[in-house]
Amino acid sequence: RLVEQTEMADPSACDDSLNSHDLQLVSKLKSASGSCSVDVSAMWWERAGVKESCIITACEYVVALWKPLDAKRWKKNYTWHFKEIPVLQIVPVPDVCNLVCVALGNLEIRELRALLCPCDDKSDKQVLLKSGNIEAVAGLTKRRLVSSSGTLDDQQVEVMTFAEDGGINEKHFLMPPEEAVTTFAEVQGMEETLLGTTGMSSIVIWNLKTGQLLKKVHIDESYHGSVCHKAYSDMGLLFLVLNHPCAKDGQSLEKPVFQLIAINPKTSLNVGVMLYCLPHGQAGRFLEGDVKDHFAAAVLTSGTIAIWDLLLGHCTALLPPVSDQNWSFVKWSSTDSHLLAGQKDGNIFVYRCT
C-alpha cells in the first residue's frame, strides 16, 4: 500500500522566513487531497497502552490523522471522508483519547460528528452527534462537548459527555440566555464554570453542573464579534482574553489584536485591562487565532502570523508567509509545545516554540 508520508523538514531552508529565534521549524505535512485546507489540531491516540501525540488536519471533505514516525516526521495514518457537507472546523475534546469531533456545514454548522480512531485501521467510524441549526460548539474538560442550537425563541444549550467507547454517556441542557450564544469558553481551573459570548455583546456565565445561568454581563459594543480565547478567575474577578474587533482601525497608531478585560461577576462591571498590539510598522488585523497558557497566536489579514507573550505583554515573534503563501489558520498543539500553522493549499507547518 502506498503510504503518504511527510516531507522531511529542512529548517535551514526556512530561516529567512523567521525574524525570531523563538520558533523552530520541525516538519511540514503536505496534504495531497487537493481541496482547500480548513483546520488543524492535535490529539492523543492510545494503542496497546502507548499514548502518542497525533496531528489532525481537515480539508473540505477529508479529515486526516497523522501519527508521529519520529521527532520530525509524521505519517498520514487514517482518513475520514465526507461527501455532502464540507468540514468547517475541528473541535478537539480535552481528556479524551482516540476521538475528535468535527463541525460540518457550508456557512453555518449543520452537523456535529465524532470521529473515532479505529483499532484495525480500516473501518471508517464516525457518529452523528447533532444536526440542525448549530450556532456554536466547544470541547470541554471531563470529556464534554457543549453546543448552542435552534432559533432565538427556542435556543438549546446542550452538554454531552463522552463514554470511553466514544458513545454519548449523558446529555443535559443549560438554561439559555435571551441572546444567541455564538462562542463558548471554559474558565481555566474551574471545571464547572462555562462562559458564552452572545451576538448582543454579552458574556454569560453558567454553572455547568446545575445548568443555572448565573449572570449576563453586558460589555461595550466595541467588543461586538469578539471571541473569548481564554478565561481565568483571580482574586474574585474574571479575566478574559478576547480578540480585538479593531473597529477603530486607522484612528489609532496602536494596532490591537488581542485584549484582556476584567469582569466582576458579582456586579457585572467590567473594564479593559490590556491591549496586545502589533509592533510598529506591522500592518494587519485579526483574522483568526488561538491562545494556550500565556501565549497567543493570530493570523493577520496581511498573511503573517504574530505571537504574543501575554505575561510580557508584547509581540515576541512574527512568522511571515512562507513560499509566498499567506497563512490561513494557526493553532497551538494541546498535547505538546508545537505551533501548527496552515496554508489553504494543504501545507501544515509544525514549529517548536523554544
Binding site: N207, Q212, L237, V271
Partner: peptide, 23 residues
Amino acid sequence: CNVTDLGPISLNWFEELSSEAPP
C-alpha cells in the same frame, strides 16, 4: 484601568451566584 472601580469583590462569587440564581 482600575479594577477597584468594579465594585465589591467576592472570592466565592461562583458559589454565591449559584445560590442566588434560579434553579
